[in-house]
Design a protein around this nucleic acid. Structure first.
Lengths: 192, 192, 192, 192
DNA sequence: CATGAATGAGAATTCATTCAT
DNA sequence: AATGAATGAATTCTCATTCAT
């Protein structure tokens, strides 16, 4: 088992990298800056990650898993598809509030050339878990009969659009806005 | 008026830069590579753009204006909001088909740190012209009464989600998919 | 055809690298030091050689070919094996006098891990040209009947030993010493 | 007197360093790799050697002394110069067989910039002990009247040439080859 | 004594930009 | 105007050495 201090440094490095990668581009972020932000020596990063790319992938996977947790943790079981969708939308919103850097990082780096197979597999796993929800909703007659991937792309894209445009200063992303948006997004998905 | 040859080189540089910036990150794209792709000398780029950042901004503005043209050019006048929305959605789709590089570039670089005031102003102008459409639709009772910026964020985000997930290989972005998606997106916006 | 200036810089870099690599180890020689010695910018080296290893190989091949020229150029044709050996020994001596750095570099780096196939091929070609001499001498009954490679190893090794020990300060390598040594070396090779 | 364990670690470090230094260059051999190979912590090396250079010098001196032992231990006393030379040549061969790494290390690092006065003194001592043999041989009329240092350089160089060229794959260094070579080398030295 | 995590100076290499041609 | 060779600052990464445990 790794020492406490080592784990702390690793966490500090990941946190600093996430902060920086979400604010500037990956390629525009020098390793020494990450080290400084994390409060460690530049060489220390390489004791935990074999390369900058490996660090980028670790940040990506951590963020993706955090998103998955946020997305799924509010579901209770035994909910209607309508309720489940609301829970996921709220979960996304809470994830964004808890770690906006992670949310923005995922959105900006989803097609980054440095992502490796493991990172892509993590992305896929998250996607599959949502696909499952859509299929159940369709089977129950609550969600429209369109390819699940397309429905997810539209709904997820809508949420991301919300964050991006609020970042651009077009409006302020309040709980009220998010809740209203959820109702609209559900109108896009629900069977009629 | 600039000479024909000079204009051609400028265009070649912009096209090469767009190609490259949409495939790799801005900071991961060397100027000499852009020059080579454009068929000009590295120094020549600096006769047309004062810096790499200036080139990035020019590419951004050109792409944004092309998107605006695509978005608006199919509208005829005298259409219902429903028809106008369909026209804009189709316009977006045509813009994507004509220059997927420009579409992807805009999506990935919308928050780039190198964007200057003029670029942001161009973005805003595009946004405003869509806002206008939403307001008219709301006045006509065809579009829901929510902040226009939020509705645009949701609908535009949904379209971008479509492109991103199809890029990720989750499905193939055919005309049929796009048309079906348009109906769903309209269901998100329309008043009821 | 490359420009004159470019060729000059390339030569300057090769000369500086040879100087430095023969005085210190390859791995102990920083590229900026080579650049400084050559009077060029550090980046310039990379316009002529793709890597430090490539530079090392170029220096090696150049030196090896210079050694080959020195070794063979004093031969006239129609000489006895005895005369030919003397010519080669003198050629080696002249090569050493003209470019002691090249001589020492070859000796110290003959097994360097960075040497590539082309460099090894150059080494082999030189070896073969000497092997040919030995075979002819053996056919003429002038040189002992031992494996040519072994004879070459002994004679060449003897010459290198001379240089190394004189470098170590055990004696001064004068023309007289070299000539006397040649007679002894021949006594090692000649048939009896 | 140092503890047994400490001596063992010191020996392990020296052995690991010798192995590594003979296969790769001194400057291309990381201390942590030596530590790992020796089965000790990286810091432990510094309890036995003040620096990497000091370690390199210790390896050099150990190897040089081992060579000296190999060179001289087969001499019995009361031999003819001819027999003594054969004994030394065989000793060299046995030393090479017992520790080829030490042999190669000495050969490659004889001019290393990090060698200190003590290392050079050790080299000199070995040289002197051979010089003594040459002088006696000359006094007895068995060895040519040339500067002993020159004769040693030639003979020793010849042996090294044998090893280098066999390493280069030109032939296989068998006992038969070594014995034949000894006869030739003696022909180079013997008075006539 | 021994360890090995941590460090930061220094290594190789890249690339935006300049300027002589 | 156009070029592309040249530059050197900045980047990623390595490793000798230290020191808290």
């Amino acid at each position: 088992m790794p020492k406490r201090a080592a784990v702390d440094k690793r966490e500090a490095i990941l946190a600093a990298a996430l902060d920086l990668f979400s604010a500037r581009a990956f390629d525009a972020t020098p390793m020494p800056l990450i080290a400084e932000r994390a409060g460690v020596g530049a060489g220390t990063i390489y004791r935990h990650f074999v390369s900058k790319e490996a660090l980028g992938n670790a940040v990506f996977r951590d963020s993706k898993l955090a998103l998955q947790r946020g997305l799924l943790e509010r579901r209770r079981g035994g909910e209607t598809p309508r309720q489940e969708f609301a829970a996921m939308w709220q979960g996304l919103w809470e994830f964004f509030q808890e770690s906006p850097a992670a949310f923005r990082f995922l959105e900006t780096h989803s097609h980054a050339t440095y992502l490796d197979a493991a990172s892509r597999a993590t992305s896929d796993a998250v996607f599959v878990s949502i696909t499952d929800f859509v299929r159940r909703g369709q089977a129950a007659g609550a969600i429209r009969l369109a390819p699940p991937a397309v429905l997810i792309a539209l709904a997820f894209g809508a949420f991301i659009g919300l964050v991006k445009e609020s970042d651009a200063g077009r409006f302020s992303l309040t709980a009220a806005v998010v809740t209203q948006a959820e109702a609209l997004a559900w109108d896009m998905l629900r069977a009629r």
